[in-house]
Design a protein around this nucleic acid. Structure first.
Length: 456
RNA sequence: GCCCUCAUCGUCUAGCGGCUAGGACAGCGGAUUCUCAAUUCGUUAACCGGGGUUCGAUUCCCCGUGGGGGCACCA
């Protein structure tokens, strides 16, 4: 059997979104699973809507997700060029082939593909005009996911616009032929188009590729499929928010596919091993950002220190605390590693760690109202300052012991001191372990902040 | 309107004629704990409806209903 060749063929007409990412992913997985070739082809025939910015975003997003293409722009290959805008010669050549067999005609300056069969006029309700229908045999699609699908293509269709540019259906098929594509894995929104494509393959005398139409991702709220405008749709956003690409990939695999057992979080190598086209679901899946967030957290907790630190640096730098960050790398590292197991997503980092980098941190009024009114908070702060000024700030266990001793002496619990201390030092009631926080902040900051709270 | 397609907890799904219908996320309750998370234990919750086929249907068939997609000189 010849080598599997699949392609992902996006058009640079908008942001790269979750649905495109999953289509790319499934193609990539199938190539990896079969030892085949993953081709990236850019369908930029819509000159009015293409932009270089979107093109670049395709490359960046695929790379970020770890979906390396074996052939395509930037990496080359034997079937190029891989931008449709550079393949005009090939399309012309193939158009001639069709013309030579009498399968085209011109109308209103455009070139149509001519179906074989009897013709008759019919009024089309939908388009409010009379159209010519062709009595044609159904095209049979042997879909790896949906089984046998039949659809009659009963109208001639445009393959070259009056401005001379070939349209999607035509270039898509010509490229699949000339690039030796064996399997077409794409969204179900193309299922109805497939009959056109099958007609073209047959007209060219080319073998029809194996099809696999994957279900669509539906928007989280409201009707319809996910689009670029929907909340949570853009890959770019997840990158900005510090999501972990492996988590997104893992999540996307589970949207319409499963390993056959109850595993969910699993290494990509295992997924590659088990992935196959017939195992893909037939029904659409609704996007769920909560589950994605959960998957991201699972990956975040296991992220190696150096990876986490570089992620944290990216996030924090963007959040403008740059000077304070660069001032002391060891301090930065300590703060971030203290926070890693506590946050749900890297995007929380700037807010979560703000008080480590400035004296001008926010004191949450609600927390103040809650914490600084119970018992005698000022007395407790005074006691804490007394005890802590004798403490070894490199030893958080010892600090904890001395605060516990202080609490016990006054018939109180550690928690009674913890709350006021935390508020004084961080302005809030959430954060990492109290004395570990002390250790990293250091004696001066801790005592000063407590004193300042006392004086206010 | 026409064509294609899909249908199990709120969501993602397992199930491929006989199961106490399983798991995960979310939710709820408990444990743990210095807060918040994490962790852990428990728990609520589903076979769209109607006909068949069959000894027996979540599972097979048909019809409804509902969802999704397509019907361009967009891709």
């Amino acid at each position: 059997m010849s080598q599997v060749r699949v392609r992902f063929a996006p058009s640079p007409t908008g942001f790269f979104h979750i649905g495109s990412a999953r289509t790319a992913l499934f193609n990539w997985l199938y190539a990896k699973h079969t030892g085949g070739v993953f081709v990236l082809r850019i369908e930029d025939t819509d000159q009015a809507r293409n932009t270089d910015e979107y093109l670049e975003l395709i490359y960046q997003s695929l790379s970020w997700l770890g979906l390396k293409w074996d052939e395509g722009p930037k990496v080359g290959g034997n079937y190029g060029p891989y931008l449709q805008s550079q393949r005009a010669g090939i399309y012309k050549e193939y158009l001639e082939k069709l013309k030579a067999t009498g399968r085209t005609y011109e109308k209103d300056g455009a070139i149509y593909f001519k179906l074989l069969g009897e013709r008759h006029e019919v009024y089309d309700e939908h388009r409010k005009k009379t159209v010519t229908k062709v009595k044609n045999a159904p095209a049979v699609i042997d879909d790896q996911i949906r089984g046998r699908v039949e659809r009659v293509e009963d109208e001639d269709f445009v393959i070259v616009r009056s401005d001379g540019n070939p349209v999607f259906h035509f270039v898509n098929v010509v490229d699949d032929i000339t690039m030796n594509i064996t399997h077409v894995i794409r969204g179900e929104d193309h299922l109805s188009n497939t009959s056109k494509h099958v007609e073209l393959f047959k007209a060219f005398g080319a073998p029809v590729p194996s099809y696999a139409h994957i279900p669509l991702i539906l928007k989280q709220v409201g009707p319809g499929k996910m689009s670029k405008r929907d909340q949570g749709a853009l890959i770019e956003d997840y990158k900005k928010r510090g999501y972990i690409p492996e988590a997104i990939v893992n999540f996307l695999c589970l949207l319409g596919w499963n390993p056959g057992d109850n595993r969910e979080k699993m290494p990509i190598e295992d997924i590659i091993k088990l992935f196959d086209l017939p195992g893909i679901n037939q029904s659409n899946a609704r996007f769920d950002d909560k589950k994605l967030a959960h998957m991201n957290l699972a990956y975040l907790l296991e992220l190696p220190q150096d990876s986490f630190l570089s992620l944290a640096t990216t996030i924090l730098t963007r959040a403008n605390a740059t000077d304070a960050l660069l001032a002391n790398p060891d301090y930065f590292k300590a703060v971030m590693l203290l926070s890693q197991p506590k946050i749900k997503s890297a995007e929380e980092l700037p807010k979560y760690t703000a008080y480590f980098f400035t004296e001008d941190y926010i004191h949450v009024p609600e927390v103040k109202a809650k914490v600084m009114t119970k018992g005698d908070p000022k007395a407790r702060l005074t006691e804490l300052i007394e005890v802590l000024s004798q403490s070894d700030f490199t030893n958080d266990i010892a600090m904890e012991e001395s605060i516990k001793a202080l609490a016990a002496k006054n018939n109180l619990g550690f928690g009674d001191y913890q709350a006021v201390a935390r508020y004084a030092v961080s302005g809030t009631n959430v954060g990492p372990s109290l004395t570990a926080m002390f250790r990293i902040l250091g004696r001066d900051k801790v005592l000063n902040r407590m004193q300042k709270t006392l004086d206010s």
